[in-house]
């Protein structure tokens, strides 16, 4: 894997000529004191692993319902590269490798490992060196992941593999802020809007199986809040919460009999028993709120190495059934506790 020799070069003093320090580079600061952009000329090569074993799926209204005896483990290994282009601008790229693994008591053992959808973007902080910080960002999610179901028969009964990418492109704009309280505390906030572009994808459900069709994922609003305490120069802890509202999906399938392609809402009407005992139908909709909470600890043993660990839990979610059987975490995140760890070298 290509990052490995890079890491070795970074850690090898003999390679100082390649990655040696330069005067143009800004100074590293402790977490709380740092800006929302990297110091100029700095690079971070970040390797992150995260895993979650989920035994539930969010059903109608986002209520978690247990699998019978299945465990769906989704793991990601992400390589991130980030660099301070200037004093005020940071560029980044994150490419995930995704591993989905489903096992159950009936002997199912389905696994797919492939490149996921990559994110790249830019953050711009107009003013630096002030008590508080404000920055703006643009993020592009590229459909670089695997978007091909392993067979053409639709439905979870025919699952033979998972997807690691949606096949669609997202563009997000975000505003980020950091308010520092003394030298020990910082409060971070972010609001973002994500537009998701329509595209032809290979997993839109047709009658009798998967097929090519148009998918327009719902746009997202997202807000993040975090509080960070700098315990000392080397250790910080952070608590964070994320809330996002995901819009509805639209799909459309062209083919015989379709003279004009029109996208339609991807919801459903399902039987429902009201409080008074009457039975009727109700519309279920994959749109809705998703709320996660997380705790992080970051250790910086040297200015060139950053280690961190985090745990996050899905607190609230919407109906995730539509794409759960495909393993599409962006659309249908499986509930559960996610454990993550990362190591970064920076220079």
């Amino acid at each position: 894997m290509w990052p490995l020799p890079l890491v070795l070069l970074l850690l090898d003093p003999a390679s100082a000529g390649v990655f040696g320090d330069k005067t143009m580079r800004g100074d590293w600061r402790p977490d709380v004191a740092s800006e929302l952009v990297l110091p100029r000329g700095r690079w971070v090569l970040d390797l992150t692993a995260a895993t979650r074993a989920s035994t539930e799926v969010r059903g109608a209204f986002g209520i978690p319902a247990p699998y019978d005896d299945a465990v769906f483990r989704t793991s990601t290994f992400t390589i991130g590269v980030e660099t301070g282009l200037s004093d005020r601008t940071t560029l980044y790229l994150r490419a995930p490798w995704v591993d989905h693994h489903l096992t159950n008591g009936l002997g199912a053992n389905i696994r797919t490992t492939a490149l996921g959808d990559a994110h790249s973007g830019v953050r711009f902080q107009p003013w630096v060196g002030r008590a508080h910080a404000l920055a703006f960002g643009v993020d592009l999610k590229s459909p670089s992941g695997l978007e091909w179901p392993a067979n053409t028969r639709g439905g979870d009964a025919h699952t033979e593999g998972f997807l690691t990418g949606t096949g669609t492109t997202n563009v997000s704009v975000a505003t980020l802020g950091r308010v520092r309280a003394g030298e020990s505390f910082a409060f971070d906030g972010r609001v973002a809007y994500t537009h998701k572009f329509a595209s032809v994808v290979g997993y839109v459900v047709e009658i009798g199986g998967f097929g090519d069709g148009w998918l327009k994922p719902g746009d997202e609003f997202r807000g993040d809040l975090a509080v960070t305490e700098q315990l000392d120069d080397h250790v910080s802890v952070r608590l964070s919460g994320t809330a996002r509202y995901v819009g509805s999906y639209l799909v459309g399938v062209s083919g015989p009999g379709v003279t004009k392609l029109e996208l339609y809402w991807l919801g459903s009407e399902e039987p429902y028993t009201y409080d008074d005992g009457t039975v009727g139908t109700i519309e279920t909709d994959p749109s809705g709120w998703f709320v996660d909470a997380a705790a992080h600890v970051t250790v910086t043993p040297s200015k060139h190495v950053v280690l961190s660990a985090d745990a996050s839990a899905s607190m609230l979610g919407a109906d995730g059934r539509f794409f759960t059987h495909l393993g599409l975490e962006e659309f249908s995140p499986a509930p559960g506790l996610t454990l993550g760890a990362s190591g970064a070298v920076r220079w």
């Binding site: 459909p143 978007e147 091909w148 096949g167 595209s199 032809v200 994808v201 290979g202 090519d212 069709g213 148009w214 062209s254 083919g255 015989p256 009999g257 379709v258 003279t259 392609l261």
Partner: peptide, 28 residues
């Protein structure tokens, strides 16, 4: 990855009209 459209004719006869349709396809 490439997405394109494929135009087909139900009866395969170019002379007949009104029975052609378009299919959106994607491959890699």
């Amino acid at each position: 990855k490439s997405a394109y459209s494929y135009q087909d004719d139900l009866d395969g006869l170019p002379a007949t009209t009104g029975d052609t349709y378009t299919v959106d396809l994607k491959y890699e």
